[in-house]
Design a protein around this nucleic acid. Structure first.
Lengths: 158, 158
DNA sequence: TCCATAGTTTAGAATCCATCTAAATTTGGA
DNA sequence: TCCAAATTTAGATGGATTCTAAACTATGGA
């Protein structure tokens, strides 16, 4: 038991899925890992390791960045979260939503958002059928300029 | 004229497309930029900026990394090459093949292959239309078990 | 419950990618 | 040819990620 108080117990399905992935891999469920999983499961953002660190640090003053990277590495290797690189800020963003969807990364403001798209489902089926692979996950990222940054660019050009 | 000798003149269609993109944007065709475009057009790999630098450096001993990044930035902004992030090594990979295709990554043997797929073109159009983003690049990765590793797994289970 | 130990965490150093800077150089048009 | 603006260069800088060794702890077994 950590010197940390036991924090709120309720878990959502996503959080439980992350914890389960760690358990099944034979990895230990430390309070730090629980906190990281909880944060990942509870945010709509696609945080970077640094953002996760900043968010969890208040509950674990001794938390080290290495622990965040360690945990994220494990989750990525297990396929429980997706690593979205190249958002233009040199940092890797992590996404706990592994359902097929498109991520849109703005190279200017570095925000990453989801784009629901029916064509993704069709692509899934085609890839599964034509590739011969047993598909376990997907990562679909488009890079570009979001509407806001496009407008800003046009104003700057004027 | 650079102090460099004029190197071989023949260009392939891909190289010419890159040079044309720079020309049309009103950017200057320096020997360094030509060499970078030539390398990009002539490789099947998805090189990082560092790899491009290392490959072109022998022909331009004074070449600076900043020039490589400068040129790649321009080409990406013009949509002539795609920036592929999150390849797992923390670096951005550049792909002069802008034809829509999917990467298939095997979680077991770690090989990555291309899968041409018409549905990708449709997805491209939909994303461009529905997102409001100006799309500059994409990375479409499905991961799972390749046919070979599926067979190996079945043998192991027996 | 207590122990042993293998797995984890930690702080900080080290590394690597990418960007920035100011000065020198070069391109392409007049 | 000459000039202005674009570009290149070397090196400094910033930031993300990885590495390391020592301290700590989760977990299973006695």
């Amino acid at each position: 038991m950590s010197r940390q108080a036991i924090v709120s117990q309720p878990t959502n399905a996503l959080e439980e899925r992350l914890l389960q992935a760690l358990r099944e891999a034979g990895l230990r469920l430390t309070p730090q890992r629980r906190a990281i999983c909880r944060y990942l499961a509870g945010t709509k953002e696609h945080p970077t390791a640094q953002q996760i660190f900043a968010a969890v640090k208040p509950d674990f003053p001794s938390l080290s960045l290495a622990t965040v990277y360690n945990t994220l590495d494990a989750l990525v290797r297990l396929g429980a979260v997706h690593a979205l690189g190249g958002a233009g800020d040199g940092a890797i963003h992590y996404d706990a939503d592994t359902n097929p969807h498109v991520n849109l990364a703005c190279l200017q403001c570095h925000r990453v958002v989801d784009l629901p798209c029916e064509t993704v489902a069709e692509l899934d089926r085609r890839v599964a059928r034509e590739s011969g692979y047993r598909i376990l996950g997907a990562r679909l990222v488009y890079y570009g300029l979001c509407p806001d940054c496009q407008r800003a660019e046009q104003r700057a050009a004027a």
